[in-house]
Design a protein around this nucleic acid. Structure first.
Lengths: 234, 234
DNA sequence: GGGACATTTCGGCGTCCACCGAAGCGTTCC
DNA sequence: GGAACGCTTCGGTGGACGCCGAAATGTCCC
């Protein structure tokens, strides 16, 4: 009953700068071809290929072939969740010789954290909803009746989220802001709605999101959130 | 804002069998001297010392000197939480050449998972409380009013748990049972109460718990849980 | 079919590191 | 003080692995 866990495979998968970078790039839930990942991490295509094999073998990443490209993405929600909680630890760890690529040094103020809104947009929304009584609890972020009504009004599939097998709400700790934002089934539903409604669009670089004018208007009028213009912050 | 995370230090810390074993041994929240850890992992004292240095540098483990012993323990709640969620991944990972020690091949049916009850006892209690309406939700395990009353009656510091900074309740996935059990501030308070009241005692080997006769009686009469005699299961 | 392109496989190089035994350091106990 | 003990540091060794360029594989497009 409940034997020891072998962390070695997962640990080894995380233990090199290039692989760590790959996972960071995939944390927004996107699929990316091997070449793009190689370029972003600053390693040769062959090296990247080897790294990706390790990540797939460790069960962290899956691969989908499409034409002459092979798209890699996180293997699932559990992987994203585990990396989130691991990110909290990584914070206090001494910074090793991790050579960042010059590109993507900063992330957009709004972005996806696997499947839910994060960054400034994510934490602002969560703060506003806690303040207005749509979400309850310091860390649980439980959905209140008022919240269900309000979110339903803007087209979020609240009922689907509530009856989903996964947890309805979950607090995801934003890596640098150290403040929680909404994750879980409801967070995912809200993310989908923001994308479908055109309130946010994926940034051309693939990382991060741009908040559109209509999205900007919505968050200001509905919840009093005033976002800075420049989408990129640091 | 929200830069990339460097997983390399944490990953490297997890990437060897001996260190993985150390962390498993410390997951029950105990402090152990270096020598005991070395013996359990089957490595020399000097090797163990080097491993422990890596774990401390990575921020996963802390060290407390006492006399000529040095006691190592997990660095905090976040570490235990992260390892828990990582354990879910480790499950699906291929088993590498991890040489288990013959001792501690099986864990006790009742044990601590860092600071809350786990194993058969933990999941049985959680199941019973969900069934009787003390806890609500498939994964949230939110405390109901009835649950607050009931737990208060058996001496659990419910109010302390509710007002704690950390999440009151959290579901912790049991590694092999793949079923959730109660964690968070309330889980911790319940664990403390079970220990203080003498319903469970730490097993002499340090791993796992023995349920005492009074504890056995309590869970049977209060919640209809019938525990097998032999504390050790497989 | 042939050439361009994306990716993987292969061979080789250099470095890192897990491991041990021996020696060093600090504590305990007589 | 001196011996026993717990632990860490040091030196050395062997294997693992991150890296690359070159060659091989597979796909697309003409």
């Amino acid at each position: 009953m409940s034997r020891d866990r072998d962390f070695t495979a997962v640990g080894r998968a995380l233990s090199t700068p290039a692989r760590s970078m790959f996972l960071n790039l995939l944390m927004d839930g996107t699929s990316r071809p091997a070449g793009e990942l190689a370029l972003a991490a600053g390693v040769s295509a062959s090296t990247a290929s080897e790294h990706l094999t390790v990540l797939v073998d460790a069960g962290l990443v899956t691969c989908r072939s499409q034409g002459r490209h092979r798209y890699y993405s996180l293997a699932g929600r559990e992987v994203a969740t585990a990396l989130e909680s691991l990110g909290v630890l990584a914070d206090s760890a001494p910074v090793s010789g991790y050579r960042r690529s010059r590109r993507a040094e900063y992330l957009a103020a709004a972005r996806f954290c696997y499947d839910h809104l994060a960054g400034r947009l994510g934490t602002s929304l969560t703060d506003a909803w806690v303040g207005s009584g749509w979400l309850a609890g310091r860390e649980e972020l439980a959905l209140t009746d008022a919240g269900a009504v309000g979110l339903r009004e803007i087209g979020v599939d609240v009922d689907g989220a509530v009856t989903a097998r996964r947890a309805t709400t979950r607090a995801c700790l934003d890596w640098t802001e150290r403040r929680p934002h909404l994750a879980g089934a409801l967070g995912s539903a809200i993310g989908s709605r923001f994308l479908d409604a055109g309130w946010v669009v994926r940034h051309r670089s693939g990382r991060g999101l741009d908040v559109t004018d209509s999205g900007r208007r919505l968050v200001r009028e509905a919840w009093g959130i005033k976002l800075a213009d420049g989408a990129v912050g640091g």
